[in-house]
Design a protein around this nucleic acid. Sequence first.
RNA 1: GUGGCUGUAGCUCAGUCGGUAGAGCCCUGGAUUGUGAUUCCAGUGGUCGCGGGUUCGAUCCCCGUCAGCCACCCCA
Length: 426
Amino acid sequence: MKKIQAIRGMNDLLPDNIAAWQYLEKTVTETLARFGYREIRFPIMEQTHLFKRSIGEVTDIVEKEMYTFDDRSGESVTLRPEGTASCVRACEQHGLLYNQTQRLWYMGPMFRYERPQKGRYRQFHQIGIETYGLDGPDIDAELLLLSHSLFKALKLDDCVTLEINSLGSDVARASFREALVSYLSEHQEALDEDSLRRLGSNPLRILDSKVAATQALLDGGPSLLDFLDDESKTHFDTLKQLLDAVGVPYRVNPRLVRGLDYYGRTAFEWVTDKLGAQSAVCAGGRYDNLVEQLGGKPTPAVGFAMGLERLVLLLQAQEVVPAEAEKPLDVYLAAVGEVQVSALTLAQFLREALPNLRLMMHCGAGSFKSQLKKADKSGAAVALILGENEAANDCVVVKYLREDKPQQSLARTELAAVLADYCPPR
RNA sequence: GUGGCUGUAGCUCAGUCGGUAGAGCCCUGGAUUGUGAUUCCAGUGGUCGCGGGUUCGAUCCCCGUCAGCCACCCCA
């Protein structure tokens, strides 16, 4: 019989790995709350055409990476490959963009059918941040300040760097594209195979090619920054001034482009060199046309997404997950002999008396010795010993597992006061 | 979709020039009738990823397939 296993590229997160995830989620969501951003949740599936219309029909995501299938009524549905399109749809559907601004975030799984590799999986997780109704460079700056704060809170700010660029208006970008295609077409013999293919499909993506010869060729070509329209240029210049003023370090990368069609003007990426070939841990930009494109009123928008698997890998590589994120036990209650009623009663009495207390009770068979072994392995600071003698005398033995201190036999009424020292506020 | 490397116990791995397997860790029990971490002893645990081929015989050689890792493409 064939072994049942998880679908390729879809991972189980086992208990030993959960601490890093919870630490990441908690740190990020607390920071978002400090900036006044509110959570929004939407389904992980949408009608297929939502993604086709927003991400772009000819992008790789739509052409070959979506989990798309017909539901039982014959409608084509798709597991979301990213969150922005769904977020816009949800806001638009519920009138959240009508004469008002929004600062929102969401968190959850995304799905792309790709070959798994380090930091890239078929089911992966993102935290997305989106703002609507704000078109100035101040909100761009706030988002970058927010992302910088996130990295500082996670103690990852020394291993990521911010790259920014402006993609200009649609018109500016179109004329740059034309110039780029014309320049590269004259030098086709110097282009690598992938770039040659992109020349026809998505020429801007040639800019961030990894091929050295292609990068060298681009040195002699047109630069996006020279094609910026005045409005985008002013917007970008102001953004840089704001970042300087608040002390967010950045590097202008004129070859930074985005893979999804809906981006224009401000584009940015936080990158690291600590994750192999996957350098981007956080990326986003402005998408002022998307709301209108999906049938809403013209609404400026800017946002970004962070890849949680990549951030967890970074956290683990940098060893910055604090020990308390592991949430160790405070107390392990060893129950030896026929004392189930007494043990359950005691355990619940203590949990109610000390709401912060983390207490696990031994269940099932187990010799005295093996129960103490388990108490030790559990990481608990204290073992409580409840045997038939104790149950008969209405007392409990407190044994200290992590400090040199003699064990003591206490009446149940004295226990809570003693254990209070072993359950710090969390 | 393409390429490279790798699949042996729950985990990390060794091994067999082709004669159906071993260590460490983990787990369980004991040395110590009710006292953990260090010791010492013993035990449980494997259809050697799966399918086919060659062979008297395959975990080992060959082919296919699936999975993992890494890279390309693409992307967070």
